[in-house]
Simulated assay, not measured.
Amino acid sequence: MPMFKRLLSLPMAVIAFTCLYPLFFTLNNALKTNKEYILDRFGLVSSPTFENFVQAWTRSRLSEYFLNSVTATVGACLLLILLSSMAGFALAILRFPLRRLVFIAILASLMIPVQVVLVPFYKTIIAFGLLNTRLGLILSYTAFFLPFSIYLMTSFYAGLPRELTEAARIDGCSYPQIWWHVIFPLGKPAMITLGILNALYCWNDVLISLLVLQNERTLMVGIAALRGEYTTNVPLLCAGIVLAALPIVALYLIFQRQIVNGIATGAVKG
C-alpha cells in the first residue's frame, strides 16, 4: 500500500508542477526588462525590477480598472448570496405548488451557454439604460451566476433538519423570521464557499464586462488590452497578470479551509 501511494504521488506531482510553473514563469518574467526577456525568455531573472508593476498600475490605468472590478465583484457577490439564500430556503424548506418544476427549470438554465443569450442580454441592458454603468455589470453578474448559486444553497438547506423550522413555527416565527434568525446563520459555510466561487467568476470575467462597460474597463479587460497589435511588452503584461491574480490568491489562502469545508458539506448534504 505505501508503494502504491508513492506511485500515485508521481502523477499528482506532475499535475502540481504544470499548475505552479505558469505562475513562476509569469512572476519571473514580470521582474525582467523587455530586453532581458527577449534575450532569455525562460532563464531566471538576473536584475529584478519593479518598473513593470509601477508602469502597469499607473500608465496603463490598472488602478482605475481595479476599482471597477472590486465594485462589480463585491456588489454581485453580496447580491448573489442574499438572493440565493432566500431562494434556497424557499425551494428546500417551504412546500408550494410546482416547487420541483421551478428547481428543475433553474437546473436546466445551467446548461444554456452564455453565448446563446448574448444578443437578447445586450438588448435588455440597453433597454433598461444599464449600459456603461457599474450597476448594470453587477446585475448582469447576478443574473448569469444566480442559477448555480440557488442550486448550491438549495442543496445545502435541504440537508438541514426540518425540526428546526417546525420548532420555530411553533414558537410563532414567520417564514422571513425563520430564514433570517435560523436558516441564514446555519448557511454560513455554504455562503462563504459560494461567495469565493462567485468572486472568482466575476473577477476573471472578460466577456460580460466587455459588453456592459464599453466606455470603462474592468481589470481583466484592461490586462487584455496590454497586448499590442503587432508586438507585446511581455514583462509588462506579466506584471499586470500578477497584479490581477494577487487579490484572488490572497482570498484563497485566507479562506482555503472554509472553501474545502463548504464544498465537502454541500456535497454530503446534497
Rank of each mutant, 00 (worst) to 15 (best):
L107N: 14
F121G: 02
A87W: 06
F121H: 07
L135M: 09
F96M: 05
F103S: 09
L91G: 15
T133Q: 05
L118I: 14
I93S: 13
P113E: 06
M86I: 14
L82V: 13
A108T: 11
V117I: 15
T133C: 03
L130I: 04
Q115D: 13
M111I: 13
L110H: 05
R95G: 06
A87T: 11
Q115N: 10
F121Y: 08
T133F: 06
Y122I: 07
L83N: 03
S109G: 07
F128T: 05
R95F: 12
I81G: 01
L107M: 15
L101H: 09
M111D: 02
V119Y: 10
L82Q: 08
L118F: 06
F121S: 06
T124K: 06
L139Y: 01
A127M: 08
I138E: 03
I81D: 00
R134I: 05
R99Q: 15
L91H: 12
L91P: 13
M86D: 03
P97G: 12
T133L: 06
P120K: 08
V117Y: 07
N132Q: 00
A105Q: 11
P120R: 03
L139A: 03
F89H: 09
R134W: 00
M86Q: 06
G129P: 09
L107A: 13
L130T: 04
K123P: 03
L139Q: 00
G136K: 00
L94Q: 15
L83F: 11
L82T: 09
G136S: 01
F89K: 02
L107Y: 04
L83R: 04
L135D: 00
N132K: 05
G136I: 02
L101M: 13
A127N: 03
L83Y: 06
P97K: 03
T133A: 02
S84Q: 08
G136A: 01
V114H: 08
M111G: 13
A87Q: 10
R99Y: 11
I138W: 01
V102K: 01
K123C: 01
K123Q: 14
S85D: 10
L110V: 04
P113H: 08
A92P: 14
L94K: 14
I104K: 00
R99I: 12
R134K: 11
L83H: 04
L101T: 14
I112T: 10
L107F: 10
F103Y: 15
G136D: 01
G88N: 02
I93Y: 12
L101N: 10
I126N: 11
A108F: 12
G88Y: 01
F128W: 13
L98N: 12
R100V: 07
V102T: 12
L130V: 04
L135G: 10
L110S: 05
A92C: 13
P120L: 09
I106G: 04
L79W: 00
G129D: 02
K123L: 13
P113C: 10
R100Q: 15
L101W: 09
L83V: 11
L94M: 15
L80I: 11
P120A: 09
F121A: 04
L83E: 03
I106K: 00
N132S: 05
F96K: 05
